[in-house]
């Protein structure tokens, strides 16, 4: 497990800050990639923020009504080191099942 700090991205040309309108997740939630995290209001528009990672929401760095500057931490996630790349998924490393059992012939 490693931490991943998601900072407020520059949501529109030259944006400096945004106000948190609401969170759709709470600390301790597991989120999927692109799952809606919440909504922020910029000087131009209300923007929905999809999750950049799959993982556990560890900290929400601001409350609704707070102003967050671009580049400041918005959400800290706990993510697995094993993130799939652009295709595929991380295989599970469970002990594989088997049906065959060996017999040693003693003669």
């Amino acid at each position: 497990m490693t931490e991943f700090v998601f900072r407020l991205p520059d949501l529109a040309e030259g944006l400096e800050d945004a106000e948190i309108v609401e969170w759709r997740v709470k600390e301790g939630d597991r989120v999927e990639l692109n799952q809606l995290l919440g909504e922020v209001q910029t000087s131009k528009a209300a923007v929905e923020i999809p999750s950049p990672r799959r993982g556990l929401v560890k900290t929400l760095h601001a409350l609704p009504g707070d102003l967050v500057r671009v580049g400041e931490p918005l959400v800290t996630f706990e993510v697995e080191d094993s993130q799939p790349g652009v295709v595929g998924r991380v295989p599970q490393e469970a002990k594989p099942a088997r049906r065959v059992h060996l017999r040693i012939r003693r003669d």
């Binding site: 991205p9 520059d10 529109a12 944006l15 990639l33 950049p52 295709v87 595929g88 998924r89």
Partner: peptide
């Protein structure tokens, strides 16, 4: 693709 995370390489702006 559904596994890709474009925030790694392009700005929302």
């Amino acid at each position: 693709s559904t596994a890709d995370d474009p925030t790694r390489y392009r700005q929302a702006a």
